[in-house]
Amino acid sequence: MKRILFGAVAALALTAGFAAAEYPEKEIQGIIQWGAGGSTDTVMRSVTPHAEEILGGSVVMQNMTGAVGAIALNYVAEADADGYTLLMGAENPMLYKVMGLGDRDYGEFIPVSLLARGTPLLVANNDAPFDTYAEMIAYIKANPGEVRFGSTGPGGLPSVVTAMINAVEGELDVIAVPYDGDGPALTGLQGGAIDVMPAVLGAAIEAVRAGNMKALAVVDLTENDKLPGVQSVAAVSPGYATYLPWGPFFGVFVKKGTPDDVVAKLSAAYAEAAKNAEFIELMEGRGFTLMGISGAEADAFLSKWQQGTAWLLQDAGLTKASPEEFGIARPGQ
């Protein structure tokens, strides 16, 4: 027992830098919005150790799941704005208001760093009677109410991509089978429980490479160099240009009101950490696009993302409340 304890303390001590009089004076809590083993968790746990080194402090990461991440968001929003509680999250909170999941979003936070964004990919079960995006659309139109799409609940990536497809191709009659995450849905896809799944590229790429499922199209303006030969949806239907590029993203946030020097220090640390070669290799291997933006640039990205997505869902009739109520302007206005 003693040995483990000592080892643990010693190893933790190694990661902590010199104790400085300025920030960080004590450990920082990193609240991860999603469960252990998920994409957000993996990204945060692989970038934070580099940031710790640069900060010269320790960041204790905890998973706080539940209510689509709203529990974690509220926890950080209710903590002191002193930079000792970080929110490590994904894109979902930007849709809480319109989906009726809460009255807070990233507007109450300062983006320390938006680390990366993902590209959605349409994958299908190997036995599905279509091999390309165009064939899929034709098949659905010929066989209404037969094709089963995986979904991860209102506001999740599949619902947004499906809304986009409906907006571009006209209303398609498909069955949306709900799953509680893209992992279980992709498992269901391989077993034939669903036929098509819009998923983030990184989650499906290994199974596609192994031939366990087939990629129909990349939901992007151009092909992706990780999957050469898979067409982009924009190449088939130019209408997608209005909505793309679109994708989920990961970021680290602090509550508004955090002192500027603290935010600057955190931003610098995460910006530097995101340049680490191992981290870059890791992210690119999974098909994520590195962003590493903060400050005004990040704010602009967030509001553009929110406008586009919220109005897309509103027009698809998937929202609980209109984006207008929350002052989210229609894109292009």
């Binding site: 010199f18 104790a19 960080p24 450990e27 809590q29 204790v60 000792y84």
Partner: peptide, 22 residues
């Protein structure tokens, strides 16, 4: 596991402990 610290400056204590080890 970060139990509520309340009136005890736990985070500072832990940091001091770590610096000591360091």
């Amino acid at each position: 596991v970060l139990m509520p610290a309340g009136i005890v400056p736990e985070a500072e204590m832990v940091q001091a402990l770590r610096s000591l080890f360091q």
